[in-house]
Each structure stands twice: as structure tokens, then as C-alpha cells.
Nucleic acid binder design. Structure first.
Length: 300
DNA sequence: CAAAATTCCTGACTGC
DNA sequence: TGCAGTCAGGAATTTT
């Protein structure tokens, strides 16, 4: 499932490959993919004729700045893929729901079997209302992310992006300790930390040597710092390897290529296999109605 | 049939 | 009593 590293991988590729391209036409075969708009036609009208200028990301959302100040926002959901086609003649994969064709030829296709993903055009709010929203955003602070967040009012509630937003571990400690909840709940709450999902929460917690159900306000200073470091490092490392592609091969990049980070997973989807540190079997439990993998010996 | 997991929503429970 | 925060569970969804 695409989480921050996978989304970032695609963002980087888009920034290289479709920058400055002008949208000639858009087809939408399923209104659900653009559900924030009144109709698919609405969406098409807003994007046709526009050029793609900037490529940002906030959590699991890709934010493409258009030449008129509006933005194309994309979320891949669980099974969404963005794929580049050099020509309209290339065979369309099943579940291709949105096709954005460019004037210079070539297309950007959105494939999504489970249709949990979406695209929408964000129109900036009038000046006065912007300040209000970014102020109400609980943890918003510093860095490039705030600029994007402030501009995209639909994403105002997202928490800080651990890769994009600059934040010291001391600051992180304040946010962490101001809540009473399990660590995994904290990491996967998009309004607190944006971009971390089920896979990376488990990997980060293993790297930090902390259990998924440790209470956020029970960590020592050393543990907070370890969690912070693990979060930043694991996400950066995964981005370096093009993200994770699981056995279901759900995630592939713009060109259909798999990521490589799955080979470095220490716990995720390794139930019963030996922990690489202590050799004891990895445990699987349900938490927040989601699978959680961890090592009972190495995580406290 | 169950499992996979995203966001959104609702309902329940807890602590102050 | 009320409120905010947290969490469990369900919906929408398709493939294996």
C-alpha cells in the first residue's frame, strides 16, 4: 500500500517527467475517483488546458501546482497507481479510471482496482480565510509543508510530514507527550503524523525497540529520541530504495517498476519468521483492526 | 469465506 | 453532567 516513501517516489518521477506539460484532455470513467467534485465534468473543466508546474507532497497526498494557482491533489488510497504512457496506443490496464493526456503527446494514467484513491482540484480560498485554517491546524509548524498545507485547505488537518517538515526531536517530544495513546495509533494518525501507514509504523517501532502499544506519554527522553530517529531514517531509507512492493505487487512506480525496500523489512509480513536480531519468531496481532507485526523480545 | 488496508463516519468508553 | 480524546468497528472495494 502506498505510504509516504512510495508516494514520494512517484512524486519525484512526476517532477522530472511531466513538469510543464499542458493538459489536453481528461477522461474519467468512474465518478467515484473524483468524488469531491459535483461531477466528473466539473473536474475535467478545472484541469483541461492547465499546465503542471510544481510537484509537492504532504503525507500520502501528491500536490501538483497548476499554472493558475490551483492544485491537482492525488491520493493513491490502497491500490492506486499513477503510470506514464508515452502514447495513447499503449494498452490500458484494467481499472484505469482517469487518463490525463498532454498536448505534446503521452498520458498520465490513474489505475485503481479498489477505488479508494481519488483526485481533486483544490481552489485556494480568499486571502483572509487562509490564516484561520493554518492556525487551527494542530501541529502545523515550519518548513515547506506549511506552505502547501496552508494553500490546500482540504488538507489543513494533516499533521506534520516527517520527511518534509523540519522539526527537532524536542518538538516531537512535546507533540508525542501531549497525547495518551498507543504508539502505533499515534504514528498512523494522519492528523498527528502524516504519511505513516501500517507497514512503516511497524518497521519504525521495531527499529526504535518499542512496542506498538506503549503509551506515548510513558517514553523516556532516550526512547523519544530513538523513535524520532527511527522514523526519519526508515522513511528516508525506504525512499532511497524506491519504496516497498509487497507480494501483492500493489505498488509500482510511474514506469511500472517495483520498489526494493521490502527486502529490508524486519517485521512487516514476517509472522513466525525469526527476528533478525534475536532469532525469536515475529508475532502478529490485530490492533486498530489492522495487522501488527513485532518482536516480543526486542520491542519493549 | 477471509484477509489485505485507506479515509471517513459513528458509537462507546474514559478521565477530568 | 459534559466534553474532549481515544479507539473499535463498519462501509466502500477487488483480488487472491
Amino acid at each position: 500500500m502506498p505510504e509516504l516513501p512510495e508516494v514520494e517516489t512517484v512524486r519525484q518521477q512526476l517532477a522530472k517527467d511531466v513538469v510543464n506539460r499542458k493538459v489536453k484532455a481528461v477522461s474519467v470513467d468512474n465518478g467515484r475517483m473524483v468524488r469531491r467534485h459535483k461531477s466528473a465534468k466539473d473536474f475535467r473543466t478545472l484541469i483541461e488546458g492547465r499546465s503542471l508546474k510544481t510537484f509537492g507532497r504532504l503525507g500520502k497526498y501528491i500536490i501538483i501546482g497548476l499554472d493558475n494557482g490551483q492544485s491537482l491533489v492525488i491520493h493513491l488510497g490502497m491500490s492506486g497507481q499513477l503510470r506514464r504512457a508515452k502514447s495513447p496506443k499503449e494498452v490500458k490496464e484494467k481499472h484505469t479510471h482517469i487518463v490525463i493526456s498532454f498536448t505534446q503527446g503521452g498520458e498520465l494514467r490513474f489505475i485503481d482496482p479498489r477505488t479508494f484513491g481519488e483526485m481533486f482540484i483544490s481552489v485556494p480560498l480568499p486571502e483572509g480565510e487562509i490564516a484561520e485554517i493554518s492556525e487551527s491546524s494542530s501541529v502545523a509548524m515550519g518548513g515547506e509543508g506549511i506552505v502547501v498545507r496552508g494553500k490546500i485547505h482540504e488538507l489543513a488537518k494533516l499533521g506534520f510530514d516527517p520527511v518534509e517538515d523540519v522539526m527537532s526531536w524536542e518538538r516531537f517530544a512535546v507533540v508525542l507527550r501531549s497525547h495518551t495513546m498507543g504508539l502505533k495509533s499515534f504514528l498512523t494518525d494522519q492528523e498527528l503524523v502524516s504519511g505513516v501507514g501500517n507497514i512503516y509504523a511497524d518497521e519504525i517501532l521495531f527499529a526504535a525497540g518499542l512496542r506498538y502499544d506503549r503509551e506515548t506519554d510513558s517514553l523516556s527522553t532516550i526512547e523519544v529520541r530513538r523513535l524520532w530517529r527511527s522514523m526519519v531514517e526508515i522513511l528516508a531509507e525506504s525512499i532511497k530504495h524506491g519504496g516497498s512492493t509487497l507480494d501483492d505487487e500493489q505498488f509500482v512506480d510511474l514506469y511500472g517498476k517495483k520498489g526494493n525496500y521490502q527486502q529490508f523489512h524486519e517485521v512487516y509480513a514476517r509472522e513466525g519468521e525469526p527476528c533478525r536480531r534475536c532469532r525469536r519468531p515475529i508475532i502478529k496481532v490485530k490492533s486498530q483492526s489492522r495487522s501488527t507485526f513485532f518482536c516480543e523480545h526486542c520491542q519493549i
